[in-house]
Design a protein around this nucleic acid. Structure first.
Lengths: 211, 211
DNA sequence: CGCGTCACCTGTTGATCGGTAGGTTTCGTT
DNA sequence: AACGAAACCTACCGATCAACAGGTGACGCG
């Protein structure tokens, strides 16, 4: 999924079988190593936002943490492993809005995202790339969207019950909800001054709220 | 804009000041040359769909039309010129649904797109890339979205008049309409069997039609 | 028939890519 | 103090990248 579903570092309920289970390296890390790893991941997030995954070179990421590309490869054996680690980290942070979520929180989430263009840009760029052949993030996004749609349907159900405007079921409205969040991001990233992303999203929510 | 707004070769009303005005080359083309150019553009479209713009090498495009990379550069002086030409070609085809459009046509357009995953994938991949720094397609998409939002607002106005559900104005609903089209494309590309793009889009239209 | 232009080639260049091999330094532990 | 592992380096590799230079053959047009 895109940055939208990334939450404010909110703890997630239960341990999930996640993309992060693919360990990046057998190398045990210690003390400062773990710290360095985190720095690298943050740098990678930035570079991917600026150039995409394919356009992000190991050298560019390494430079940002004052390392040689080879020093970087000590922490992450391959470029793909680095991407996987970036995705896995977010996998822990976010919550793929769980069963307990309410729509109001989604609105706040969009507002939060509007203050963090970097993260939004990273995941929007990755989402776009992921539809190409053999992209390492494709499986990640596919699985994630499946989960997000299901959870969104659940959120809609607990919020509005079984019946929505136009006789829509929560399951049929969920893809629309997700699509609006993602689509608005692209418009907002391209023209932040022309598109009020949070306001537009709330417009959509009220549209769903009518009965 | 994304593939959604590409129409069935429908002629557009008036000549527009378009992205295509950036001529790709001063080289005059003749007879077979023009034909070859078209083949190259088609091949480029395919390769971009598969690998994105950054991932698409001149060699890959050239190979698909039985050419050397240098032979390709004879027709398009740089890689960026090739991309511009691809975008410009679509700029002619599509219609950025003009004032005369009706919502019903939009539904058919989505159905049409659902039968052409290649084109949808090309423009979805490009849209994703375009949010990164210095991407050659960024200006194209920015301008296009501005125009599409304006036209969509007009379409909504002629269809539903001034007042939509929840007191939305056409101008406020337009970004949502565009967002739904784009967002649904990504979900559909990632999981064609799980997401019925045309049906979902029609769901959204009926949502707007309620009063 | 001849000449010019277009189409396309070979050859090459310099940059950059991700990644390997193997060494050296730093540091925590005992 | 000694040892081992982790952190990080230099050196290097083959592949691939977009693009330049310069040449050749074919074809259209006068």
């Amino acid at each position: 999924m895109s940055a939208l579903y990334l939450c404010h570092g909110k703890p997630h309920g239960e341990p999930r079988p996640s993309y992060g289970d693919v360990m990046t390296s057998g190398a045990p890390r210690s003390a400062r190593g773990t710290e360095r790893r985190a720095e690298i991941l943050r740098a990678a997030l930035e570079v991917i936002a600026e150039r995409g995954y394919r356009g992000a070179s190991l050298a560019a990421v390494a430079e940002r943490v004052a390392l040689t590309p080879q020093g970087l490869l000590h922490h992450f054996p391959t470029k793909e492993a680095l991407l996987v680690a970036v995705l896995a980290e977010r996998d822990q942070w976010d919550a793929v809005p769980g069963t307990g979520w309410r729509l109001e929180l989604l609105g706040q989430l969009v507002e939060y995202n509007a203050m963090r263009p970097g993260i939004v840009q990273t995941f929007s760029a990755l989402l776009g790339e992921s539809v190409t052949e053999g992209h390492p993030a494709r499986e990640f996004f596919t699985q994630r969207y499946e989960a997000v749609r299901a959870n969104m349907a659940q959120v809609l159900r607990t919020e509005y019950g079984e019946r929505l405007p136009s006789g829509l079921t929560p399951e049929r409205a969920a893809p629309l909800l997700v699509a609006v969040m993602d689509g608005l991001q692209y418009q907002w990233l391209l023209a932040p001054d022309s598109v009020d992303m949070p306001a537009a999203f709330r417009d959509f929510l009220t549209l769903l709220g009518e009965d």
